[in-house]
Design a protein around this nucleic acid. Structure first.
Lengths: 343, 343
DNA sequence: CAACGACGTGGGAGCGCTCCCATCCGGGGC
DNA sequence: GCCCCGGATGGGAGCGCTCCCACGTCGTTG
């Protein structure tokens, strides 16, 4: 407000003002315990008077840490997924990082070229760690980043046996809960619209669906399984196929709300009433679920909580770079069925 | 891949390998013209062989620029607005920044405390400029940032006479287009559900609504104007009020799709058919518009394009910090009516 | 009563880059 | 043949911080 004269004040100037050495001010700023109470107070006053804020670039250069982490979102996915998904995730990550006083660098990767540029950024030591959202089964990026010696945490995993630390939601449980609910409503010919099967999340939900059938003593039937791609149009196509193959189906578990919306429109065109003729369950509990007619029963994932957990894990890892071959950390958060009128 | 021995290579090492001085390598890296073709090639080879990537912190410290910009989103708004709004905006900003080789620092501000912390970050010289999304009429932040000497560009404006550079969509045109369309369909008692009137965007859409009525030769009627808050519940409340006051209304222009959804549910409860009894138009052309029953006619804003424009303007400004009292830049992008079955 | 930790402190030595000045070289003008 | 000029180049001087070692100054201990 007042003390500024030319540019921003430096450590040196604060030291001079407080009548101490540079090192001492640094210690105070960084909360070192080896400073007398008296000195600490004097320095704090000088800091306040000058409005001193440490220069981040200098810190990063001298201390080789940036207090920033990167969140990588593949652009393609950003379109497919229920839209608010990434916003919720960002919200969680951001909240946790704010508490830890770290910055969030957001990177939307939209092409192979941009992915390479991103690796350059990492090499430029701009961040202390990386958060990866929505990885495909064959994505090499997680491993590449680890080779660079940077901590990584992923949202979701690439396969059952994922070596890289991750946070996932209980997708198997999601499928089981949906099927169990449908069975409980007296449905016996339950179909499913899956996601693209090169994504573990899609396979897991399908696995949950099958497990649910098995638990209910229902026989699996491949004619009741149709592959979508997490888009509305994909859901529509898959639903048409299902009606062709098994016109007698009485329930559908769609692996996402968006696909459920697609399926719902096909059902309407085919003259099937929801839920009277066909019960419908989705996954995500996104806003569209609430707005559908009838409102869609859906399995909720704790997206924001996943974001928080990821950030926490990453910060944890950053602090442990010294530690040896850390056993990979995993977190699988529970999902929850939100019942509405569609079944 | 191979040349790495201990840590990442530095300028100095590249210089040694290429048999030139540090300054020359720096010139090559930064594309200075004062380097002979021969030298340039030699340096480029050394860079490639060593896999050299300039250290960002050192650059920032020595050159006092960070090649990063901050995008600030108030968390409260992130919930109110049609959800995909900010993702679209981020997408546009991100795309433009990637082209300019700049980093995006995303900041969700959820409290006064966090806002202050954010100002600290700015003072720490972490970014070259700031993008501000969704500002309220009395938000002092834009001015504060300018006081810090940082370029700013806002999304939307705080008032008609906004001194800070901004990118906005043609909200007045949006209101006019909606009303004109309704009039064209033979509606004469057109109501509106507005946003919170402390936001310019809400006032502008209301202004457009009034202009539209005037242009059609319809008399304004304050009983047909009801204030919402951009939430579904707010839309519901406002719609109930409207039905109370003017049961004979035959059309509603809601200033957002989300509020339109709220209004729609009230209309259904009141036994009014859409569009037969009451025609409905929203704003945003969000996914919910497409999924509503009937699908909602809505005014589309070019959100991603706004993001791109903002980023472009900011980069522009950053390059012109030398220039004098730059006349504030403004961009107002056109909106477009997307006709669906709700009217 | 000398020797010795422990604590608090000051400040040198970088971190890896950009900026800029000094230097070198060759060619053209007189 | 000498001088001058401009383009190409080398490298010193920081940028503002953290790290760490060295230096008092005490209160303890044998």
């Amino acid at each position: 407000m007042s003390g500024r004269q030319s540019g921003r004040p430096t450590l040196e100037q604060v030291a001079a003002r407080a009548g101490v050495g540079r090192g001492t001010v640094s210690r105070v700023i960084n909360g070192s315990p080896r400073v007398s109470e008296q000195t600490r107070t004097a320095v704090a006053r000088a800091v306040a008077e000058l409005g001193y804020v440490p220069n981040q670039a200098a810190r990063a250069l001298a201390g080789s840490r940036t207090d920033a982490i990167a969140l990588v979102i593949p652009e393609v996915e950003a379109r497919l997924f229920a839209e608010p998904y990434f916003l919720d995730l960002i919200r969680g990550v951001s909240a946790e990082l704010a508490e830890a006083d770290k910055q969030l660098l957001l990177t939307l990767v939209r092409s192979e070229q941009e992915r390479q540029r991103f690796e350059q950024y990492l090499a430029a030591q701009r961040v202390d760690g990386v958060l990866l959202a929505s990885v495909h089964g064959d994505d090499p990026l997680p491993d590449r980043i680890r080779e660079l010696g940077l901590p990584v945490v992923m949202n979701g995993r690439r396969s059952e046996a994922e070596p890289v630390p991750y946070v996932d939601s209980d997708n198997i449980g999601a499928g089981r809960a949906a099927v169990a609910h449908l069975v409980g409503r007296g449905r016996g010919r339950i179909a499913t619209v899956t996601g693209p099967l090169d994504m573990y999340v899609a396979r897991a939900r399908l696995g949950g669906y099958r497990a649910g059938l098995a638990e209910a003593g229902l026989a699996p039937d491949e004619a009741l399984v149709s592959t979508g791609d997490f888009t509305e149009e994909g859901g529509r196509r898959a639903m048409r196929l299902l009606l062709d193959r098994r016109p007698d189906l009485d329930a559908v578990f769609a692996a996402s709300d968006v696909m459920a919306a697609g399926a719902r429109s096909v059902l309407r065109e085919a003259g099937r009433r929801v839920p009277e003729d066909v019960a419908l369950v989705g996954v995500d509990d996104s806003p569209v679920a609430r707005l559908m007619d009838p409102p869609l029963t859906s399995v909720r994932q704790p997206i924001e909580e996943m974001g928080r957990t990821m950030a926490r894990m990453l910060i944890q890892e950053i602090h442990e770079i010294i530690a040896g071959p850390d056993e990979p950390r995993r977190h699988v958060l529970p999902t929850e069925l939100v019942v509405r009128r569609s079944c």
